[in-house]
Amino acid sequence: NMASGLLGDTLSYIRLFAIGLTGAILGGVFNQLAVDMTEGMNIVLRAVCMLLILLIGHSINIGLCTISSLVHPLRLIFVEYYKNAEFEGGGKEYTPFKKA
């Protein structure tokens, strides 16, 4: 059980690497999209359209990467690491609707 747990953790960390890699690829796609979509326009209109595409595209990419870089490591620590390390927390059970 311990070996399979460690293998699962390793695969999860590889998934984090893949998330970072997809963020880099998506950034390149937005750069290429801005260049290809504005080809043939005059220079002023091209600059404005490229700026819009780049700002919107990279904002979406930064948002997605931020969310994934916060959520996935927390999941790894709290779900997988504590399960495989046989962590047993002590304390009181949380019962918010218990009658006083």
Results as ranks from 00 to 15, higher is better:
E93I: 14
G5I: 01
G27D: 03
L52H: 04
M41R: 05
G40K: 02
G57K: 01
G63V: 06
F30M: 03
S12C: 06
L7H: 09
A3H: 10
I53H: 02
N61V: 07
A34R: 01
L11G: 04
L76P: 00
L33K: 00
A3T: 13
Y94G: 03
V44R: 09
F97A: 14
K92F: 04
S69K: 03
R75C: 10
D9Q: 09
G40W: 01
P73H: 11
N61H: 07
I56Y: 13
S68E: 04
P73K: 14
C65F: 04
V48D: 13
A47R: 15
L70Q: 11
Y82C: 02
T38N: 08
T22P: 00
K98M: 06
Y13T: 03
V71I: 15
R75V: 13
A18C: 12
D9Y: 07
Y94E: 05
L54G: 00
L52Q: 04
N1C: 08
T22C: 08
K83T: 07
L16C: 07
I25M: 11
A34G: 03
S4H: 05
Y13H: 09
I43G: 03
L76K: 02
G91D: 07
G57P: 00
I77C: 05
S12L: 09
L45F: 12
E39G: 09
K99L: 13
G23F: 04
L11F: 14
K83A: 13
L55Q: 10
L16R: 01
I60F: 13
G89H: 01
I53V: 15
S12A: 12
A34P: 01
L33F: 04
V29C: 06
L7Y: 09
L54A: 01
S68H: 05
G40M: 05
V71E: 04
E93L: 14
G57L: 01
I25Y: 13
G91H: 03
G27L: 02
V44C: 05
Y81A: 03
A100L: 13
N31Y: 08
I25P: 01
L64K: 03
I67A: 11
E88V: 12
G23Q: 04
D36F: 12
N1I: 06
P73S: 13
V35M: 12
P73W: 11
G5T: 04
N1K: 08
L7I: 12
H58Q: 15
M37H: 12
I60T: 08
L45V: 09
L55H: 09
E39R: 11
L64N: 02
G89K: 00
A24L: 14
P73F: 11
F87P: 01
A100W: 08
L16S: 03
T10G: 08
R75F: 11
N31L: 11
I62H: 06
A18F: 12
G20F: 06
I77R: 07
I43Q: 09
V44Q: 10
T95C: 11
G57F: 02
F78T: 09
L55A: 14
Y94C: 05
Y94D: 05
A85V: 06
E86Y: 03
A100N: 14
T66C: 14
I19S: 00
L76A: 07
G40C: 04
V29G: 01
I77T: 10
